[in-house]
Write a protein that binds this DNA or RNA. Structure first.
Lengths: 206, 206
DNA sequence: TTTTAATACGAGCAATCACTCGTCTTTTAA
DNA sequence: TTAAAAGACGAGTGATTGCTCGTATTAAAA
């Protein structure tokens, strides 16, 4: 068990950082369009205006590319949520609490369509599935914390399950949300999502 | 616009029918394990104990194979649901109605794990996506019909949306259901699914 | 029995994909 | 100014895949 990281820790230049961002942007698009398996690394490189060799200078293989993309999503999600989340949230009326959590989440998912697409993709390797967990836990942990202060009588067991169900419930309605046209349709689907969440949660945590 | 089907309508022997079933069984397994893109037709043939050439004698290409598999699922689902569905259902108490609809559906999905896996697979071609619709409409149509008699005051628009949300809500919780171990865990997740559905539906259709 | 068609095989083809490597250019460090 | 390192390129490689086709076997029709 050596302590140092096995990575050679290459020095990145500003140009390299920019290239990585371009490649991740391209990967987000192509993955969203074709899925992980269906996307070719050459296509990603081409969309980023780079050559295959350049892509592999920054990402060791296709999986590392997807992992890096997922990691960037998690960072952004945490940032977007950090703003919309404060401890006082737990004492809000349920409807308002849901508004405060769901609205930014929907905005994020619609602004980053590659994120839910990659999350939902079933044919990811075990390593990548591991990289997905943090993304799922971002929501789960926050919810669990809220429930803890809001419904302290709940057994941890049931609290966890409630959080998990709430997350999956939302994820199930996401395709409807992602497919909705901005405007009336989106508003209707959003309202319905909140109604479903609110109905479920109030039946559990009062 | 010719009237006859463009298919040469080859005569199948009993042996051929058996082979097709074997190939579809194998396809269900391999698709469930690797996803549509990740599954190779040679692997499907091998698992069925057949050669690639034999597979392509019955299915013109990989997509037709998946379409045939999906069609077989839809048939089975309709059969399983036809039994559990009768017109009197609409007048039942909501909880009981949900039991009668959800229990056989969960049983079916757990008995045919390839079905939800294939349904959820994102990287299917447009043709295959079209083949998915009947499967989705099996549930949707039944729900819409039930709501029509049960909540006649609902606008068709909102009724459709309610059915769609109910279907997606269930589908969102399916991964939890599919992953649960038979017994206590499955019972808990099933109960939670019914609770979510019941809470949502009673908030819409009273 | 003879003939025709359905079933079965599996080596192999053309296309695609993830990834490499030798070479060149640009940037940073000395 | 020069040396070293990072970035960039893209043709090419080995492996895999969907699918074909010539041939052989089995079963049904004549």
């Amino acid at each position: 068990m050596t302590e140092d990281t096995p990575k050679p820790a290459r020095k990145r230049q500003a140009r390299g950082q920019r290239r990585m961002e371009q490649l991740l942007d391209a990967a987000a698009e192509v993955f969203a369009e074709k899925g992980f398996k269906g996307a070719s690394t050459n296509a990603v490189a081409a969309r980023a205006g780079a050559s295959p060799g350049t892509l592999y200078q920054f990402f060791g293989n296709k999986e590392e590319l997807a992992e890096a993309l997922m990691a960037r999503y998690v960072d952004r999600l945490r940032a977007a949520h950090g703003e919309a989340f404060d401890p006082a949230l737990a004492s809000l009326p349920l409807d308002e609490l849901i508004d405060r959590v769901i609205d930014p989440l929907i905005a994020f998912d619609r602004a980053n369509p590659g994120f839910p697409a990659l999350l939902a993709d079933p044919d990811l390797s075990p390593e990548l599935a591991g990289a997905k967990k943090p993304a799922q836990n971002v929501m789960f942990d926050r919810l669990d914390l809220i429930f803890k202060t809001r419904a302290p009588h709940l057994e941890p067991d049931q609290r966890h399950r409630t959080a998990e169900v709430a997350v999956h419930l939302f994820r199930g309605l996401l395709p409807l949300i992602m497919g909705a046209a901005e405007g009336e349709e989106l508003a209707a689907v959003t309202a319905e999502t909140k109604r479903a969440l609110g109905a479920y949660l109030s039946s559990v945590i009062g």
